[in-house]
């Protein structure tokens, strides 16, 4: 009965690992590796946002009638995270470790408090509210 929570929490974990790997490479000054790892992190994070915004949130809003509630807050925070990632991409292109690490620290706080709210509150609500979590997970996996 926790399919949505488990699937999306797993995606968070995966993105966290990619985030840390990219940051560690910047910290070690390995820019080529950092570029690869950051690209993987950004791609998978954007795919995760897409899973939520295109599949989960519309279903959740339709089922609960909460269109201007938690999903709106989560969408706003996705925009903030995208802004921070754009800044990191610019810093990476300019090989500016100081700017990258300052922004990655900021993104980490933003991302982790966002994830915590989703994992503690939104996903469990979705698991309770949506009738067929397994089918929804299958749609996200296929997207």
């Amino acid at each position: 009965m926790n399919e949505i929570t488990e699937y999306l929490t797993e995606e968070h974990e995966h993105c966290d690992s990619l985030f840390a790997a990219a940051e560690n490479a910047v910290g070690e000054g390995d820019w080529a590796l950092a570029g690869e790892r950051f690209a993987a992190f950004q791609d998978d994070t954007l795919r995760h946002f897409e899973h939520e915004e295109a599949v989960l949130f519309p279903e959740f809003e339709a089922c609960t009638g909460m269109a201007a509630g938690p999903t709106m807050v989560m969408r706003d925070e996705h925009v903030q995270m995208c802004d921070a990632m754009e800044g990191m991409a610019t810093a990476l292109a300019g090989r500016d470790a100081r700017a990258y690490l300052g922004l990655s620290e900021t993104l980490l706080m933003l991302m982790r408090q966002h994830n915590l709210k989703e994992e503690q509150i939104l996903y469990p609500m979705a698991d309770r509210a949506l009738p067929d979590g397994a089918a929804l997970v299958a749609r996200m996996a296929a997207a």
Binding site: Q80, D83, E86, G87, A99, L101, G102, L103, T106
Partner: peptide, 16 residues
């Protein structure tokens, strides 16, 4: 950021 002062790239980051 929330008050719309600037986009993330133009704001001082946490280290700053």
């Amino acid at each position: 950021h929330g008050q719309g002062a600037a986009r993330a790239g133009g704001l001082p980051n946490m280290h700053e």
